[in-house]
């Protein structure tokens, strides 16, 4: 029941504020409260090389690059220091199996921490 209800509640709250795409592995806190899934290339690790001189998106010229926005907000918003420090961490590939599920449940169960076995081999 909760598994069906929570995604609806989460989407209802996060869609209007952050244009949430329900990836199920929310990283908003580490990206200046800016959703990287709204990047047309769904990049999780920073801006591509196509950002326009005015800071807008290569794909949607009328839209500010979400990573420019994320960087500005990370610098300027009064966010916890540890969140700001997470900005430049290497985020793993999106787990497509979590698409549409509640990131809140996945946070509590730590399901969103699961990465492919090879991901953390060696140093980052």
């Amino acid at each position: 029941m909760l598994k069906k209800l929570l995604p609806l509640v989460e989407h209802a709250l996060k869609k209007p504020v952050w244009d949430c795409r329900m990836c199920g592995q929310c990283v908003l806190h580490s990206t200046g409260m800016t959703c990287p899934m709204t990047c047309p290339k769904t990049l999780r690790n920073g801006p591509c090389g196509g950002v326009r001189e005015n800071g807008n998106c290569e794909v949607k010229p009328e839209m500010q690059c979400i990573w420019v926005k994320a960087y500005d907000r990370t610098v300027s918003l009064p966010l916890p220091k540890v969140w700001k420090e997470h900005y430049n961490e290497l985020r793993p590939p999106v787990d497509m199996q979590l698409q549409g599920t509640s990131s809140w449940i996945n946070l509590v169960t730590k399901r969103d921490q699961q990465v492919p076995a090879g991901w953390s081999v060696g140093e980052h």
């Binding site: 591509c48 290497l90 492919p116 076995a117 090879g118 081999v121």
Partner: peptide, 21 residues
């Protein structure tokens, strides 16, 4: 995957495993 993740995959493979392990 994005470019940083692709780079990490190459590094992982060079240590002797695919991304899956």
């Amino acid at each position: 995957v994005d470019s940083a993740q692709a780079i990490n995959m190459a590094r992982i493979m060079a240590t002797g495993t695919y991304l899956s392990g």
